[in-house]
Design a protein around this nucleic acid. Structure first.
Lengths: 144, 144
DNA sequence: CCATAGTTTGATATTAACTATCAATTGACA
DNA sequence: TGTCAATTGATAGTTAATATCAAACTATGG
């Protein structure tokens, strides 16, 4: 996401482009696949923007979620975590959590389309989004 | 789940059968499909067992989750919610959350088997469990 | 049935993620 | 560039959940 697309997206929702919001986005872009918590994002942003306040980061993550810049993740570790939302890719993107080592793996899979279609037909529920998490044992933990 | 099966399950994990644990289980059995929070369970248990403490209910829910008596649910409303875990049934049981009215619907669907098989083959990840939530609009909200 | 030991409980203090408040500052637009 | 509403930073407040600890209880072996 470049500066112009970012500004446009904010504007479309009636929000302003601020240095702080840009700085938070930059951290997310620079650290793909890390599933950062708000506090972690805060500490990374402070490296390049020491004046930023924690409350601003909390507010920014809420805003980013609202306008579809991030997905809020829940790995049952007591805080929300975030990843950049990538248009086409994300509808087919799930997480595997290993219950032994607690590592989180990413998975590409498009078989959910079928399920969503069935839910639409059978329950008349229009599916816009989904969250899917699988729990089990990763390859490494299984071998030892 | 009857008294004997309950006691056995606790014993198998090295825990004792207490009046409080039994009282919490009874509330869950008497209120199927309600997705109760810990505080809600606490207030229901108090009706038949006024001396119970809130901390005990929190501890009991943690224990019930550990030994597979309940599923911990996350509907992004700031607290954990719970439902009784039912052996065969539950692996095919998902939730639909309507983003307009916030009602939660239950869905039976077994198409995930296919996805889990693929994850096992492709990523060598042994799937023991999963959590699946769909977000969208329910029939009623779509019609108005 | 009773004594014992280890578990569990209730009350309460504490923690931690997150939100509300508000004066000062900033960004967008005229 | 001036204006004004939006945003920010600091911090107080909230709330779900956990830690602590003495008292009470449960399971077990005698």
């Amino acid at each position: 996401m470049d500066a112009i697309a970012f500004k446009d997206k904010l504007k479309r929702y009636g929000y302003k482009l601020t240095t702080q919001r840009r700085a938070v986005l930059d951290v997310l872009i620079q650290r793909p696949g890390e599933h950062l918590s708000t506090e972690e994002i805060y500490s990374y942003v402070k490296e390049s923007f020491p004046e930023i306040g924690l409350a601003t980061v909390y507010r920014t993550m809420q805003l980013f979620e609202e306008i579809g810049i991030v997905n809020r993740l829940n790995f049952d570790d007591g805080c929300s975590r975030f990843e950049l939302y990538v248009d086409n890719e994300d509808h087919h993107h799930h997480h595997l959590i290993c219950e032994k080592c607690n590592k989180v793996f990413e998975v590409e899979n498009d078989l959910l389309e079928e399920i969503e279609k069935e839910i639409g037909e059978k329950y008349k529920f229009y599916v816009k989004n989904h969250k899917v998490t699988f729990y089990g044992h990763c390859q490494e933990c299984n071998e030892h």
